[in-house]
Amino acid sequence: MQSKPLINNVSKNIQKSHKKNKMTEWKYFKKNKELFILSLPGVIYTFIFAYLPLLFLVVAFKRFRFDLGILGSPWVGLDNFKFFFTSQAAAIITRNTVLYNLTFIVLTTVISVTLAILLNEMTSKWLKIHQTLLFLPYFLSWVVVGYITQAFLDSKSGLINQLFETYGFSPVNWYQEAKYWPFIIILVHLWKHIGFATLVYYGGLMGIDSTYYEAAKIDGASKWQMIKKITIPLLMPLIIILFIVDMGKIFRAEFGLFYFVPNDVSFLYSSTDVIDTYVYRSLRVVGDLGMATAVGLYQSIIGLILVVSTNYIIRKINKDHALW
């Protein structure tokens, strides 16, 4: 009998606490309503393009017909997934996608961290010029980058072949030789993305307390010792966070890079074809929306597993460096 009043008191306290939290949240919203209003375009954009399409994932398990619609189309189970995994090109495009992304992650991290440290050592006079030169390619669309690449590699009027002929070398038909394209793809990707990654890490360097370097100077530490013992360890949390995020995109290739830069030339598919370009061509030729949705779902699930697994491993090694 005595337990009933105790339970009632606990229940009342929980309700009061809940109401108090609601009031606190409302006061917080009213206090920062301008910031919430400013964030509305981003929230609406994310909802429309990231969350609303989740309702249509059911298409991955149906043989979609436009005349029947999503609800009326017949169920086919996992047949749409089988179409991708049983195709002859599945192994090649999966290998290309994973290996290219792993190479991008490693090289972009190493080069951009190095450039960020070099920028940090420069005087302010030259810093803005170097920042502009590095960051400018990031704003170019892949269509423009494709035309720039063609200007260098065109078999007749390309700049590289003209240089070859000038110095007595035979010109190369770049768009028919697949063996050169892994290096071309990597170079083009680095040229376009290194600037942005460098500025991200440079921003991280700006957040390091200068007193660490002053104390190291007093102790007689060299530049290399300060980089090794101060800069890189303090920059490591940012490097790991970006690494975890990139691991989630390892099964998603940058469509523009692999479609517009090689000009979708069939001779180069063994080196330039990835999951995204393969699905695009299949959708364009076959028109199978269910298969395209199935592959997109497959990429998202693998990406989620990789992010969670990578974060779990990093958490085991160093809890402070994990994303959550």
Rank of each mutant, 00 (worst) to 15 (best):
F81H: 03
F169S: 01
L199K: 07
N21F: 10
L6V: 15
D67M: 05
D209Y: 06
E34R: 07
L268E: 12
T166S: 04
A216Q: 02
Y167K: 01
P237C: 12
Y138T: 02
K179V: 12
Y278S: 03
G303Q: 08
K22Q: 13
F169E: 00
F169T: 00
A91C: 03
G158N: 01
F139T: 13
T109C: 11
K319E: 15
H321G: 00
W174R: 09
F255P: 02
L268Q: 03
K179R: 14
K31E: 08
S271M: 09
I218P: 06
M122G: 10
K31C: 02
W324I: 13
S271H: 11
V59W: 05
D320P: 00
L306C: 13
Y259W: 13
I317W: 11
V98H: 06
I230R: 06
W181P: 02
D154K: 02
S170E: 12
W126K: 13
K316P: 10
A91N: 07
S271E: 10
Y167C: 00
K4R: 12
L107T: 10
I275C: 02
F139V: 15
A60G: 09
Q299F: 07
K19V: 08
I239C: 06
Q88L: 06
W181G: 06
I227T: 14
A215L: 11
P74S: 10
K30H: 09
I129V: 15
I117K: 04
L118P: 09
V143G: 11
Y202R: 04
I317P: 05
N8T: 11
K31M: 05
T108N: 15
V279C: 07
I208L: 10
V295T: 07
S271V: 12
K31T: 08
I250E: 01
F36H: 03
I160E: 00
G287P: 12
Y202S: 04
S141W: 07
Y45C: 03
G256S: 05
T310H: 05
G69N: 06
F255N: 01
I48M: 13
G256Y: 03
P53R: 08
K319S: 14
N173W: 05
V261N: 04
T132L: 15
K179T: 12
I244M: 08
G77T: 03
S309I: 14
D264C: 03
Y312F: 15
N32Y: 10
W142D: 01
T293R: 01
T123Y: 12
P53I: 09
L134R: 06
W26C: 04
K30F: 02
W324Y: 08
I70N: 08
F164I: 00
L289A: 11
K22G: 12
V43P: 00
D79G: 02
S17Q: 11
I302S: 03
R65Q: 15
K128T: 15
L57K: 08
